[in-house]
Structures are given as structure tokens and as C-alpha cells.
């Protein structure tokens, strides 16, 4: 008797209308994402140039990819960019969320102002910061005109600092979103807990680090996931701000892939790059998702 019930349960679950409603989305995910991934994987094993071909060349494209200075430099830039972007957005976003949460007068207006940059595209963000950071037009020129002729702020045109200029601009753009997510988390914390901590005489910084931040765990994880995907696909801000320059100083993997996909008519090499990126992301995210899933199951 019990075994019959156990066997029927999955069937009943499968007939649940909610699953039917999700079916189109699930199909789209499988066909579009998985299908595209498999297609890229296949193309990356061929010698395709302008058009997809079926002449399999094994791993030759991957060998060429990892012998390419620009690709290696792009990976290195992404390794510098991603942690700084993530840390910067989370830290700034958290501070902004605390500021807005203090129920100051005009909190709503502040929230709109901080969230506003996120409504801008990366291209618009990039252009604004390109002007601000241009040594002949922007901040450097303005400060010099105020009477500090030795002032230097030329990251954008400096080989060694161009990537940090992009970090700066994209943090400005992304911090607002983190603020909105964390603010929602903060509003969900029971005020009684904070009151109890105050009664116990716990210092303010300790309340933040030992109570508030741990309780915001899921909000932080969500924000970090969104930021990480944005970091990996970083493309438009680079195109708008530096075009990968000066020289190849601020090249990133997504730009390498896009350039080879179209302008350089090398579908196979671009697909090899895309496949490497996809596998890296999966390898990074899989343990994270596994740990989260385990934690949820343990709690249940």
C-alpha cells in the first residue's frame, strides 16, 4: 500500500498545473541555452571562418586560443576586474542600503538617485565616464583649472590603469542594484532583534557584522550571483570607454569573442573562447549551487 502511494506521488507532482505553466520556460531554457551551448561547442571543434562548416579539426582552436597573447591578457584582466567589481559593488551597495534604511528624511529620493545609474545602459555609463576620465576634458582638466596644475588622473589613457577605470565606472553603475536588493533584505529583519541587541548594549558595528550581515546572507548571495554574471559578460562598458585600449591593455574575453565572431570572421575561434568561458562559469557556480542546495535540504 505504501509503495503504491510512493509511486503515485511523482506522477501527481508532474500533473501539477504549476509545472505545466513552467513548461514553456523550461523548454526555452533547454533549447535556447543548452542548444546554443552545444552548437558553440561543435563549431569550436571545426575550422569555420565566416560561415559554419563541418570540417572537424579537433582541439586546434583551443591550442591557438591559449597561444594567443590577447586572449591570455583578457583572462588576466577579467581576473583583476571580477573580484574588485564584486567587492566594490557589494561594499558600496551595503553602505548605501544602510544609509537609506536609516529612515532619513528624503530616503525615497536618495534611493531613486542611487538606483538611477542602474537604469543606464553600460554604453551610456561608459560614455559618461569616458568624458569624465578623459585627461583633456574631464576631471583632470577641471582640477588643474582650479589651480592644481600638477594634478594627474589619467587612468583611462594609461596602460597599467585602464582596467581600474572600467572597475570604477561599472561599480558606480552596479552599486545601486545591490543597494535595492540589500534594502529589501534589511526591511525583512525583525526590528525586535535589533531592539533586543540595543537593550543588551551590543555596540552598533557589532550589530552590523554579527547580526545584520549574516541575516542578509541570501540577499548578498543573490547580488553576488547577478554581479558575477555581469562581470563575465563585461563587453559594452569596455567598448564605450577604451575599445580595449590603450593598445590591448583593457581587453576582456567577451570582446575577444565578439571581435572574432564578426569582424575577424573566425566563428570557430570565437566559439572556442565562448565555450571556455561557459565551462569556467559552470565550474565556479556548480559548487556554490550545490552548497546552497545542501544547506536548504539540511534545514528542511
Amino acid at each position: 500500500m505504501t509503495s503504491v502511494i510512493r509511486r503515485r506521488a511523482p506522477l501527481r507532482a508532474a500533473l501539477n498545473p504549476a509545472w505545466f505553466a513552467l513548461l514553456p520556460m523550461a523548454l526555452a531554457a533547454v533549447v535556447v541555452y543548452l542548444g546554443s551551448f552545444l552548437w558553440s561547442l561543435r563549431i569550436s571543434l571545426t575550422g569555420s571562418r565566416s560561415l559554419p562548416l563541418h570540417d572537424y579539426v579537433g582541439l586546434a582552436q583551443y591550442q591557438r586560443l591559449f597561444a594567443n597573447d590577447r586572449w591570455l591578457h583578457s583572462l588576466q584582466n577579467l581576473a583583476i576586474y571580477s573580484p574588485l567589481y564584486l567587492a566594490g559593488c557589494l561594499a558600496l551597495g551595503f553602505l548605501l542600503a544602510l544609509l537609506v534604511d536609516r529612515q532619513l528624511r528624503g530616503g525615497g529620493a536618495l534611493r531613486a538617485i542611487f538606483l538611477y545609474p542602474y537604469a543606464l545602459s553600460f554604453i551610456a555609463t561608459g560614455l559618461i565616464w569616458q568624458w569624465l576620465l578623459n585627461p583633456e576634458l574631464g576631471i583632470q582638466q577641471a582640477v588643474r583649472a582650479w589651480g592644481f596644475p600638477a594634478f594627474r588622473f589619467d587612468w583611462l589613457v594609461d596602460q597599467d590603469h585602464a582596467i581600474y577605470a572600467i572597475v570604477l565606472a561599472t561599480i558606480w553603475q552596479g552599486a545601486g542594484l545591490v543597494m535595492a536588493i540589500l534594502l529589501a533584505g534589511l526591511r525583512g529583519i525583525d526590528p525586535d532583534i535589533l531592539r533586543a541587541a540595543r537593550v543588551d548594549g551590543v555596540p552598533g558595528w557589532r550589530v552590523q557584522t554579527s547580526i545584520v550581515i549574516p541575516m542578509l546572507g541570501y540577499a548578498f548571495a543573490t547580488a553576488a550571483l547577478l554581479l558575477l554574471t555581469a562581470a563575465v559578460k563585461l563587453y559594452d562598458a569596455v567598448v564605450a570607454m577604451t575599445q580595449g585600449g590603450p593598445g590591448t591593455a583593457s581587453e576582456v574575453p567577451a570582446k575577444f569573442i565578439m571581435d572574432h565572431l564578426f569582424g575577424r570572421a573566425n566563428l570557430a575561434l570565437a566559439s572556442a573562447g565562448a565555450t571556455v568561458m561557459a565551462i569556467t562559469v559552470v565550474a565556479l557556480l556548480a559548487p556554490l549551487l550545490y552548497a546552497r542546495g545542501r544547506a536548504a535540504r539540511v534545514r528542511a
Partner: peptide, 19 residues
């Protein structure tokens, strides 16, 4: 040159011009 060869050379040249 193919667009690919041309692009690879352009990468080297722009790097040399700037560094």
C-alpha cells in the same frame, strides 16, 4: 590577408604603439 590574420597583426601593432 584574411580578416583573422589582419586582426591578429593589428593586435600586435596597437600593443607596440602603446607600450
Amino acid at each position: 590577408l584574411t580578416p583573422d590574420q589582419n586582426g591578429a597583426m593589428a593586435d600586435v601593432l596597437t600593443d607596440y604603439w602603446n607600450r
